[in-house]
Each structure stands twice: as C-alpha cells, then as structure tokens.
Design a binder for these strands. Sequence first.
DNA 1: GTAATTAATCGTAATATTGCAATATAAAAT
DNA 2: ATTTTATATTGCAATATTACGATTAATTAC
Lengths: 109, 109
Amino acid sequence: MGITKIEIYSVEQNRLAQLLKALAHPARIAILQEIIKSNSCICGDLVLELGLAQATISQHLKELKNADIIQGTIEGASVCYCINPKTWKALETEIGNFLSAVNTGNNCC
Amino acid sequence: MGITKIEIYSVEQNRLAQLLKALAHPARIAILQEIIKSNSCICGDLVLELGLAQATISQHLKELKNADIIQGTIEGASVCYCINPKTWKALETEIGNFLSAVNTGNNCC
DNA sequence: GTAATTAATCGTAATATTGCAATATAAAAT
DNA sequence: ATTTTATATTGCAATATTACGATTAATTAC
C-alpha cells in the first residue's frame, strides 16, 4: 500500500505524526541543527556542510517548510531559512505532552 | 533511491532520526497511547480499538519493538506489551535537548 | 548584455513503507 | 485430540521516500 489510513485517527494523532515524520530523517535533523547553530539564518551553506547534492538539500528543506517547521525568505540570489518559532513551540508542547504521559518509574513486563 | 545515507551523519543524529521515525506514524502513536492509557499492559485489544487488520497492528508493534520503545512478554496465548522505560527516558532526553536548543523568542526572517 | 551564482523543480532509479489476506505457530478450552 | 483463540510471518500490491543529474529561473558580478 504505502498510504496511511489517516481517517481512522484523531486530528491530534495525525498532526503529531506529521511533525515527527518531518523531523525523522538525519539530514533534516542535521539541517535544523545547522540553522539553530548559526543562531539566525543560513542559506545554501548546507550543501557544503552536509555531504548531499543541492537538489537533495532543497528537497529536505521543502519538506521542513511544508510541515511549517522552517520558513524561508528570499535574500537576493540566496534564501535565508530559519525556524518557525510558532511551530517549534507547538512541537515542544505536543511532543512533551505525549512523552510525559508515561510514568517511567513503573515498568510492568 | 529510498535509502538513507546514514554514513554521513553522526551516531546521535542517526539514533534520534531512528527513534523519531518509529514514532512518526499515527497508528504507532495510537498504539503507544493505548499502552500508556491502560497503565500497565494490554494485548491484542489494539486490533479492536484501532481500525486496522491484525497483521498490520502486529507489524507496527514489531517496529516499535525494533526501536526498543516497547517490550513484549508472552502471557499464555497472548502477548503483553509495555513501554521500555529506559528507551523512553532516552527519548525524553534526546528530543528534549534537540528541541530546547532553539530560542523561540528570536525569529529572524 | 553576458557569465557566474543560487536555489527550485523535473524526471528517474532504487528502495522503503503501509496495509492486508492467507498462512503458520502456539497456547487454551472443549 | 480437536477446536478455538491470539499473535507472528509471508507474500504481495500500491504508494512514498530518498537521492541525484539535468534543467530552469532569478539575481549578481563583470
């Protein structure tokens, strides 16, 4: 199949899965860490930093943009990407709620 | 391609991506929430709770097991699944570190 | 204006994922 | 012993993902 049956889950479950999926690739994690490290924005230095082709980086950036995790601003010939603070806060809240629902003290089996 | 170039990333980046990927499906989120809700363990009630075929549930459980997020104990004819507290703590730490690296106060573009 | 730079998009190949029916395996109930 | 119940595995079809070369579009440098 390859297609996910989103209609049988809650909106929250689908949204959390979507956000996690956008983060769930080492290239995208590395990209985000680069963006975070360079405090404000960076542009296509990513192609130099990571060992991936320009087309591949661009594709990963697109996915992060689609999930609203980053936003890009055209800056002359290059594009400046940065974290979308609103989505990032939502991420922290939603993932936090999900993870903290477990009492890691009691293990049963 | 479909294959990820894991050799160009750090162990930490790959591990975090792997954990996130295991969580990044609404069915697996729903499964984990069911396990968490029923406090200790549940068995194949998942097939009844979610609207998925038994084979599909079993496959998702396997992926969660492979990522060491849950563990299963055979209990007669059925199997009892629960959260692996060790991995869950690691998840909280690693995701927490990753997310808290962003200062959501300053947005630049 | 022309060449160089930057980044997005298109097309494509290889591989992965999702979902399920059918089957296999193993314990429990009869 | 046979049937029922519970779960795992296999095989398969449909779709998604990853990666990249080639191309395009837009800007900057000359």
